[in-house]
Computed example of a mutant assay.
Amino acid sequence: MELFELLKALILGFVEGMTEFAPVSSTGHMIIVDDLWLQTKEFLGDGSANTFKIVIQLGSILAVVVVMWKRILSIIGLYKIEGQTTTKFNLGHVLVGIIPAGVFGVLFEDYIDENLFTMKTVVIGLIIGAVLMIVADKFGPKKPAITSLDEISYGKALKIGFIQCLSLWPGFSRSGATISGGVLLGLDHKTAADFTFIMAVPIMAGASGISLLKNWDRINMDHLSFYAVGFISAFIFALFSIKFFLKLIARVKLTPFAVYRLVLAAILIVILIN
């Protein structure tokens, strides 16, 4: 594989890692960058290119595991967080939170892959997702009742899980949907982001695994280096973006990200019209 093609994988990994946990839609950004500039479909093929965009998210998931390993191990009972007498947030909360998106994702995966990985659908997702984020900041409680993961009930975890289903539409943003939903349900922004990141591990790992298995016959073994570069790039850049975003979201909330999404959508509309 030529060096320039590997550079494309590096760029897409950068885009994935830097945007996966910000409420701006990493999949949407990868589609935009790829369709407007990189054109990986020309040598990967449509099916393989879409699979690549999903599979390299595993790099970002690995970054979550590295950054939040203590909390993840505590959820499954393999680690006790220092100074914490009880851990009410457990594996049950995560399972309840991922079931809705997991079910809808399996049911509509083929339709999404074949019809929604386009610039037009991304623009729609960017705009509607931005509106939801502004609504969350404006109408969410001024003094959130839930300020830690251990205060999240199973009922709220399930409701956030249903809201997460919106993110199956490329451009909507998984973190944007779930953080907004969490805020509207009484979580503060930091806790909503923590819950979002933890739910992302099984959801994205499952989605990536299923997509990889279903499209394995479309993947040329000569392209494995392309996948590897994208994966490693996404992992490295996600390590930086996770810690930065968790600090940023507590300070600036969601609205600045919503404004960015609306500006980006406006630019894309101009490009599509022309």
Rank of each mutant, 00 (worst) to 15 (best):
L268I: 14
S233E: 08
G155N: 13
G105R: 11
L246R: 01
K214S: 12
Q39M: 06
T51Y: 02
L224S: 10
F226Y: 14
I146F: 03
V103R: 04
L3A: 14
T147S: 13
F231A: 10
R71E: 15
L185P: 02
Q164F: 06
K159E: 10
V252W: 02
R261F: 08
L38F: 11
I236A: 13
I72Q: 05
L187D: 03
I99T: 14
A234N: 05
L116M: 15
I128P: 00
Y227F: 15
I210P: 01
G140M: 02
F4G: 10
H93Q: 11
I76K: 00
A266M: 14
I146L: 07
D217Y: 07
I249A: 05
I203F: 07
F240T: 10
F104V: 11
I56K: 03
G97K: 04
I152E: 13
A136V: 03
K53M: 14
M204V: 10
K142Q: 13
F226G: 12
G105F: 09
L107E: 10
F162N: 04
V263M: 13
N115W: 06
Y111D: 10
L6W: 02
K156S: 08
L166G: 02
D46V: 12
R218D: 14
T87S: 15
C165E: 11
F14I: 14
T118Y: 09
I81C: 12
P256D: 13
K214V: 08
S74L: 09
F162R: 03
P256T: 13
L168A: 09
K70C: 11
T87D: 15
V94Y: 07
E82P: 15
